[in-house]
Amino acid sequence: MRHVGAIAGRELRSLFSSPVAYAVLVLFAVLAGFFFLSGVLQFQDYIVRMQAFQMAQQLEELNLNDHVIAPFIHVMSVVMLFLIPGITMGLFASEKANGTQELLLTSPITIWELVLGKFLAAASFVALLVLLLAIYPALLFWYGDPELGKTLAGLAGLLLIGVTYAAIGSFASAVTQSQLIAFFLAFVMLLVLWMLGFLADLGAAGGAVSNESFAGVLRWLSTAEHFESLVMGLADTKDLAYFAALVAGFLIVTRAAVESVRWR
């Protein structure tokens, strides 16, 4: 496993010498700023209105964690649906297009080292995104007193779902040599996984998925459902196991996809 660092390091350096990394960082920061600001303004608006109507009890229930930070983290997880594929699309596809795959596969490294190195690079970039994003909730600690534990749990949840997206994106990049196809394939896979829960809800309302146990399965498979409990600070081991299984599963099929060039 000693080559993992070398592969991850090269990948990160390449990422930052292309405009893609900066485009994603800027887009992410701008969108985060926009959603954060609108969240805070809306929160302020609530307070003003509740004071005007003397709704003391509701005012008491209003808090920064549930009404600003959680919705903010939630919307940023949706933004990640299309930004993470932008980061992962080149991981393997560009090696194939460049011909550098031939260097990698004739070097004394194992395919696991290659896959883990690439995944580690993408996961590090996700961590950077989450760190960047953490600035916004951090500002709230200056002006108010949100709960630290809940905030950190939410950010950790975002990191976890982002890393899971990175594993899925790696797989999409490993099955094609076109970065564009890798991007859309990853995006579609992420979107479908995310929407399974909604599909179940639609079905429950009398659609095709009227079978309740089937709807339950769909909901269980959906990333959105598990992410929900993470953001709310209600994560249990089942949710963590769900994301860990997704990451492990997609890394295994990524490895198989990389290996498969040898058998074609």
Binding site: R10, S14, S17, S18, N98, G99, T100, E102, L103, T106
Partner: peptide, 16 residues
């Protein structure tokens, strides 16, 4: 480890 290999297209990373 014992082989040095130059494929038909040199395996280069243009940005490095």
């Amino acid at each position: 480890r014992a082989v040095g290999y130059l494929p038909e297209t040199p395996p280069l990373y243009p940005e490095m």
